[in-house]
Amino acid sequence: MSELQYASPFERLIARIIDKVVITLPIYLWFGFNSNLKTVDYIANGILLVAIVLLNVLWNGQTVGKKVMKIRIQSYQEKKLHIGHYLLREFAFTLYPFYLLTQPIIKTGWLFWMLSTIVLILMYGRGIHDFAARTVVVRTEAKPLPESKES
């Protein structure tokens, strides 16, 4: 019987970067980098949010990046996840609309939010968005645990 192994912060970060590049790069290429970049950012991030939620629903907690990194989202309480879990998780993660980041107090709040998420992932294997949605990100292929040497 294999125990669940939480995905490392590195695996989670690389999966997010892959998703962002695979989903948003075509949008930037389509509109061109000479367009109103702020508008293209809104469109790209809106599509990213929808795509991540839909892929998680359709692929049982995985996106393109999560498939590549061999990790997935699952319920912390061993229940079946539905679209509401994925929406809540993504909204809690992407709580920072770009236009609000022009205000210093909001920048400070966003920085605190992201740092808190990083610390929680390092300490408990779950970020604020995971706690909010009652999810956890686990490896799909269990890596063997190191064997203890007995003398």
Rank of each mutant, 00 (worst) to 15 (best):
H82D: 07
Q103R: 11
R12Y: 03
Q74A: 02
G109E: 00
I128Q: 03
L145F: 14
L81A: 00
L87E: 02
Q77H: 11
L55W: 14
L49D: 00
L122Q: 06
A133F: 13
G46A: 09
A132W: 15
G65C: 07
K143G: 08
W110M: 11
I128V: 10
V40T: 06
I118W: 06
D19Y: 14
K143D: 13
T117V: 05
I17V: 15
W110T: 10
L13A: 13
N60T: 10
S116A: 14
L95T: 12
L95Q: 08
L101I: 06
V57G: 01
L87G: 04
Y6D: 07
G46M: 05
H85L: 02
L25V: 11
V64N: 04
L48R: 06
T102G: 14
W30V: 13
L95G: 12
A132G: 09
L120C: 01
G65Q: 05
N36D: 15
I83Y: 05
A92E: 06
I43K: 00
L145R: 08
Y124H: 12
G46Y: 07
E141K: 15
S148Q: 14
I105N: 13
V68R: 02
G46P: 07
T102M: 05
P144T: 03
A142T: 12
F33H: 15
D19N: 12
Y99V: 12
S148M: 12
N56L: 00
I18M: 09
T102F: 01
L55P: 00
L58F: 15
L111G: 11
G127R: 05
E150F: 06
K143S: 13
I121K: 03
L100D: 01
S151P: 09
I52T: 01
V57R: 00
P144V: 02
K67W: 10
I105V: 15
F131K: 10
L4H: 03
T117A: 07
W59P: 01
E11I: 04
P146Q: 15
G32K: 15
L58H: 15
T117G: 10
M123F: 05
E90N: 05
G61T: 00
E141I: 14
W110G: 09
Y42Q: 08
L88C: 11
A51F: 13
V136I: 14
Y76Q: 11
L115D: 08
F112N: 13
H129V: 03
L111I: 15
N45D: 11
L49S: 00
F98A: 12
F10P: 05
Q74E: 10
R89L: 02
L145S: 12
K38Y: 01
I106L: 07
R134I: 07
N60S: 14
I43L: 03
F112D: 09
V50S: 05
V68W: 04
V53L: 01
I121P: 00
L122I: 09
L120H: 01
Q5I: 09
L37N: 14
P97M: 04
T94R: 12
Y76H: 13
A7S: 13
L101G: 07
T140S: 03
W30Q: 10
F112S: 15
S148L: 12
S35F: 13
T102H: 06
R16L: 12
I52R: 00
V138F: 02
M123P: 00
P144S: 05
T24C: 09
G84Q: 14
E150Q: 11
D41K: 05
F33G: 14
G125S: 06
M69I: 06
